[in-house]
């Protein structure tokens, strides 16, 4: 080991060559993936990437600043509708419309952050929950947003590149996702991130050290909403069609579940949580296609729960996972990762 140390090591993005190597492998794998996988799985990967963006942003708010939000579907919807409307009505190019819609979501995040200054814990949860529901209700009443009928995403071109398939969009989405995760990681490592964490851990002490609580709490809401907005804008082009009912309360809770399962207050945890639960979410919708087990589940559900079968089985499973994680591994996937790492470091002792 090099004995000469540098203060920059503390904040470096890549702390060792091993990490750089594995990141290179990951990027290579991500680049090859759409050429070897079936088209459906490229769609699944896109869906997971969207979740990663939103959950990393949500984690900045919930995990690092310690402010809960159960209304992120609202910001997500603002981003999705904002991007499409800016492109169809104002004829913005996609790469401009997306950050603009993100900024609109951030503005709403800032506005929601203001009352949140006086609220804590369950009260804040209810207030943000109300925001999420209200937003989609209002969007569903506005003509320019297609009311209840929803909106179709316009054709997508970036420069000369015409994006048509999931595979094409994958190459737009993945770089944006990686960029946003890296930016979030840098924010956490510098002054703003330390201010966020200090508010979570001891807000009075943070204030007496010169951290302006009003500013940083609303900033956390705004940044988090920006991530959700950008995620929403991209989601509109994954689905190609959006309607208000899509952005319901369960979506907000799902984002929160992903962050908690991944591990609040860590960077890679929520990425893992978002990927895992995003995959699970889509796979569970196909549960009835599994031979024998699918029929058994269907019969069980019809005789005990509902006439319509198991349309919402993913919600049941998510609830179960959340309970189990809270009981046995409060640090989530990140906690399991840390323990595994420790175990192998000490092995065979």
């Amino acid at each position: 080991m090099d004995m000469k140390r540098d203060y920059y090591e503390d904040v470096q993005v890549f702390t060792s060559k091993v990490i750089v190597f594995w990141l290179g492998v990951l990027i290579l794998a991500l680049a090859i993936f759409p050429f070897v996988a079936k088209n459906y799985y490229v769609y699944v990967a896109n869906y997971m990437a969207i979740n990663v963006i939103v959950v990393v942003g949500l984690n900045l708010l919930v995990g690092y600043t310690g402010q809960i939000s159960m209304g992120h579907a609202g910001f997500f919807a603002i981003g999705a509708y904002g991007t499409i409307t800016l492109m169809t009505q104002a004829h913005f190019p996609f790469l401009l419309a997306l950050p603009c819609a993100g900024l609109v979501a951030a503005l709403f995040g800032f506005l929601l952050g203001l009352p949140a200054l006086r609220l804590e814990g369950p009260y804040l949860a209810i207030a943000t929950l109300g925001f999420g529901i209200t937003t989609t209700q209002i969007i569903g009443k506005i003509k320019i947003f297609g009311e209840r009928q929803g909106l179709h995403a316009p054709d997508l071109t970036i420069g000369p590149w015409h994006i048509q398939t999931d595979k094409d969009f994958y190459f737009v989405l993945i770089p944006i996702t990686i960029l946003l995760v890296l930016l979030a990681r840098n924010i956490v490592k510098t002054k703003v991130g330390r201010a966020f964490i200090s508010i979570r851990d001891a807000d009075i002490a943070a204030e007496t050290m010169g951290v302006n609580l009003t500013f940083y709490k609303t900033l956390a809401f705004a940044v988090s909403a920006f991530y959700a907005g950008v995620g929403g804008g991209l989601y509109a082009f994954v689905l190609r069609f959006i309607e208000p009912e899509l952005f319901n309360m369960f979506m907000s809770i799902m984002f929160l579940t992903m962050a908690v399962v991944g591990g609040l207050g860590s960077m890679m945890g929520p990425v893992g949580g978002a990927c895992l639960l995003g995959l699970l979410d889509l796979q569970l919708r196909n549960i009835l296609e599994i031979p024998y087990f699918g029929q058994w589940i269907k019969a069980l559900s019809e005789s005990y729960f509902t006439m319509t079968g198991v349309s919402n089985i993913q919600l049941i499973v998510f609830g179960l996972i959340l309970i189990l994680i809270m009981l046995f591994e409060p640090l989530g996937i990140f906690g399991i990762w840390i323990r595994t790492k420790k175990y192998w470091k000490m092995w065979p002792f």
């Binding site: 503390d10 924010i187 510098t190 002054k191 703003v192 330390r194 201010a195 964490i197 200090s198 979570r200 851990d201 001891a202 002490a205 943070a206 050290m209 010169g210 951290v211 900033l219 940044v223 207050g265």
Partner: peptide, 23 residues
């Protein structure tokens, strides 16, 4: 103290007012 930060970062928070790095 900020229990989930290390010693260095805790003291770094004292430098908050002197640092200009924004978001």
């Amino acid at each position: 103290l900020f229990n989930n930060m290390n010693t260095m970062e805790n003291i770094m928070l004292g430098r908050h007012l002197y640092m200009k790095t924004g978001l």
